[in-house]
Structures are given as C-alpha cells and as structure tokens.
C-alpha cells in the first residue's frame, strides 16, 4: 500500500483520480485513527489501550505517506511502532497492570476532562476553519525524498541535531538513574 501511495504522490501533477484515491484513503485512515484514539482513552483494558495506540500510530504513519513524507513515515514505524510501543508494553507489564478489564482506570469526574477537550477542539477547529478555509495542497505536490531530508538535517539543522543527540544521551542516563534500585 505504501508503494502504491508513493507512486500516486510522486510524479508531476496528480491526476484527479489520484487525488480522489488519496482522499478516500485519507478519510478511511482518519476515521480509523479517530475511532482507535477514542477507544484508547476510554477502554477499560490497559493492554487493549496499547493495541489501539498501535492502530493510531500506524494511521499517522499512513498520513505521512499521503503527505509525501516518506522518511518521517518510516521513522514513525521504526521508532513509534517498534521502540516506543515495546517500551510502553514493558511499562504495562512491569507495573503489573491487570490483564483484562479494570474499572478503576479513569477519574470520577470525566466530564470535566471532556468539557475541556471539547472546548479546546471547538476553538481549534473554528480557528483552523477560519484560517485555512480553502487552502489546498499544491496539485503538483512533490514527495520529500529522504536525501532532501538528510541534506537539510546535516546542513541547516546540524546544531539542533547535535543538541538532540545530547538530549537523548541525557534522557538515557536520566532514565537509568531514576529507575535503578539503590
């Protein structure tokens, strides 16, 4: 599927059919992602929640493909679906969460959270609607190749990149220090 979409997104101006297909794919993916995300925050089973997160992250990776960001999609799959998911599942296991339904996962006053989230959503959707009402992605949208990404990272963004590596090292050491038994 990735191959197909990449084909669709790549050369020259996309045909109307191409846009059509892309749109259909997007809406299906988005619907799946939203439903999975909703289940993620409402499910009573921690392991299920992790699996729903898997679905959402995959959907986001697919969205990247639609947007022509192939390297981000690959990283999303490798880092999120590979590493972070495993970490979270380890977290679930190490904290001995109950496998199966658990009625005590949510706070009592869920409606406050719902209210805030809904309000936030309303504000954001409204302002996006006002702000980008009819802006379209360029019809001749070019996929952003991995080489372009690497050129950019290792020239313009070399300093943030190095800073990020230091941050990762610090996080690594920090995590070890925090979690080790002494």
């Amino acid at each position: 599927m990735i191959h197909l979409l990449a084909q669709e997104a790549s050369p020259g101006a996309m045909s109307d059919t191409g846009i059509w297909i892309s749109n259909i794919f997007f809406y299906v993916i988005a619907a799946v992602a939203v439903v999975a995300a909703l289940k993620l925050v409402t499910t009573a089973n921690v392991v299920h929640a992790a699996l729903y997160l898997l679905v959402v992250l995959s959907a986001v990776a697919a969205t990247y493909v639609i947007l022509g960001a192939e390297f981000a999609a690959a990283t999303q799959v490798l880092v999120y679906l590979g590493a972070i998911m495993v970490l979270l599942l380890f977290g679930v296991m190490l904290t001995r969460a109950r496998i199966g339904a658990d009625s005590d996962l949510d706070h009592e006053q869920r409606w406050i959270g719902g209210l805030v989230a809904a309000g936030l959503g309303a504000v954001m959707v409204y302002s996006l609607w006002e702000g980008f009402g009819s802006d379209k992605l360029p019809a001749d949208m070019q996929p952003q190749r991995t080489q372009m990404v690497s050129d950019e990272i290792f020239s313009t963004y070399i300093v943030p990149f190095e800073a990020l590596s230091v941050l990762l090292l610090a996080a690594l050491i920090g995590a070890v220090v925090v979690a080790r038994r002494d």
């Binding site: 406050i112 959270g113 805030v116 309000g119 936030l120 504000v123 302002s127």
Partner: peptide
C-alpha cells in the same frame, strides 16, 4: 485541566 482550560479560554 486548569492549564488546558485556561489556554482554551485565552485562545
């Protein structure tokens, strides 16, 4: 909650 709520109101 307060943080997000306040941010929403401000926006």
């Amino acid at each position: 909650t307060l943080l997000f709520g306040a941010a929403t109101v401000l926006v």
